[in-house]
């Protein structure tokens, strides 16, 4: 898969990813997506295309645990986020919402916003450099593959076949 990237720095917190003032007023997916990264990069929400990928430095998504920090990005069409490291709750929210978090310390240093990278099952290729993708535990991968925690459990409990 070839993806266009949006590149950001270190310690980006969820307040600038999705401002707290909207958490209780906005409800629809489109409305929420309109404000993704509003206080970090106003160009993002207007120019993002489905299939784009975010690449960030350390501690992406630190701060408040609000789920919209993930869903606003997901509903903008981004379903993979790569970072040198993630805020722990943000990482949880990604998995539970079916957004693929990839921990990749080196990538952010070799690319710029607008570049393209290739993501395969095991590695990321950018500027002819190869970066391995750490494997998630099988059970976590299964949640991601199902589209998140709720869909995964729905599938497990609602399918006719025994789990």
């Amino acid at each position: 898969m070839i993806s266009r990237v949006w590149v950001y720095g270190d310690n980006v917190n969820t307040d600038v990813i999705f401002p707290g003032k909207y958490t209780y007023t906005l409800r629809t997916q489109d409305e929420i997506a309109t404000h993704a990264l509003e206080d970090l990069d106003p160009a993002f929400a207007t120019n993002v295309q489905s299939g784009d990928v975010i690449v960030a430095g350390v501690n992406w998504g630190c701060g408040s645990s609000r789920e919209q920090g993930v869903t606003s990005i997901k509903w903008s069409g981004v379903t993979t986020i790569i970072a040198a490291s993630f805020g722990g709750l943000y990482f949880r929210n990604c998995i539970n919402q079916g957004v693929r978090p990839i921990v990749c310390p080196g990538l952010v240093n070799v690319i710029q916003t607008g570049d393209s990278i290739e993501i395969t099952a095991n590695e990321i290729v950018a500027n002819r450099q190869h970066f391995p993708i750490p494997q998630l535990s099988p059970s976590v991968q299964a949640i991601l593959d199902a589209g998140g925690l709720l869909p995964m459990l729905q599938r497990r409990f609602q399918s006719a076949a025994p789990a």
């Binding site: 722990g88 990482f91 949880r92 925690l149």
Partner: peptide
């Protein structure tokens, strides 16, 4: 949602 998952399966993934 995580608590509902815990009720259903008795387990939860954690980093």
């Amino acid at each position: 949602t995580e608590m509902a998952a815990l009720w259903a399966t008795g387990e939860l993934w954690l980093r």
